[in-house]
Design a protein around this nucleic acid. Sequence first.
DNA 1: GACGAAAGTGACGGCGCTGTCCCTATTTGC
DNA 2: GCAAATAGGGACAGCGCCGTCACTTTCGTC
Lengths: 204, 204
Amino acid sequence: MIVEDQHLMRLALVHELQAAIPACVVHAAATIATALELIEANQFALILIDPGLPGYDPRSEMDRLKTISTVVERTPAAIHIVITGAESAQEWEEVRTIGVAGYIAKNSLKPGTMTAILQSIADHGCCVGLMHETSMSPEVYHAVLSPREQELVQWMMQRPANISRKAIYDQLGEHLNIDAASAERYYKRARAKLLKFGQLPESL
Amino acid sequence: MIVEDQHLMRLALVHELQAAIPACVVHAAATIATALELIEANQFALILIDPGLPGYDPRSEMDRLKTISTVVERTPAAIHIVITGAESAQEWEEVRTIGVAGYIAKNSLKPGTMTAILQSIADHGCCVGLMHETSMSPEVYHAVLSPREQELVQWMMQRPANISRKAIYDQLGEHLNIDAASAERYYKRARAKLLKFGQLPESL
DNA sequence: GACGAAAGTGACGGCGCTGTCCCTATTTGC
DNA sequence: GCAAATAGGGACAGCGCCGTCACTTTCGTC
């Protein structure tokens, strides 16, 4: 079950969870009230919860903890992971004592990370992901490109000047489990598309 | 350009924007520093910005406004929309005076809403979306279903007892621009899949 | 008993994304 | 100059999703 008030984030969490756990059933609630309804009707194995729900003051540590403990108390059989936009090491210590297994900052939650989180909980019993201040490089998204093409372009734009494109193709081939030649083909198709639509960045 | 620190939300916003504006190019930044880099290198027509960035205190109204005004001042040609997780009517009044056209709560931002937001700004010059306390009904997502099938199941589960399924098929056909008969087949295929995987909810 | 609503099954063409294979110019570097 | 890297194009099969069409059976109700 996922308890998260922001529609888009809830959707994203559903997808992350489905990507991490094949053939699973995910229930989602936007409010505590809805979550409690679901808890009474179902047995959940895993619960993601964001303590910043409407109706409660997200600045109040008490409200946040109450939200979490309310859910945790009623689902003793489930594994609980807190997904928060305003994380603090202290809060993690507190929720840990009431039985929460994971504490993840929304900041540090990237696409595909869910698998690692669940694995970590399975191995060590808990998982913490506080904020990464990694000063991300800028991202560019072109609507005319398919996801694969988009990914190829992203990689290629980050290529240091002294590395040959061929080397990138090899890296990508290994990373995506495809032929380096196919990676080359993708990049070329992507480039052709961008050229066609006049969206070609200078960094080519 | 999108300025948003949470990876998943940033991704979701990119998709929303691409869905609303065909064949567009979207740049995304996770920090103010990255955003300012992008501003110096590009001319943007539309900027979505979340004031709750790392390095600033999201509780401090001053930090939030500074984040916004920093970006707005340097991009006078762009339309600015604030996307915030902690909205307040007062903050909207303040950012409005410095030239922000839209103020949308993450709470009220649903998949597909971006088109309406942009349309509203085009028509009236501004758009406000504060929190909807609509006490959403619970959602269920089955990984084995395709998006269409998922949607059909969702609709069917919300069916009041006194409405025939046939009526739902008609509604759906109209809503999705497909044959009511096709909607029927989708539902049946979805049901067959759930049955096969033992994931059939009682509400069938 | 007849009729319609609902359930269950099978099949088809179209489309886009993916991954592969092949062929040809042009440029770059040694 | 020659070889490797780069740029550009065309074609193909596989797969999943989408939308459509057709057929059978069961159930409830009038």
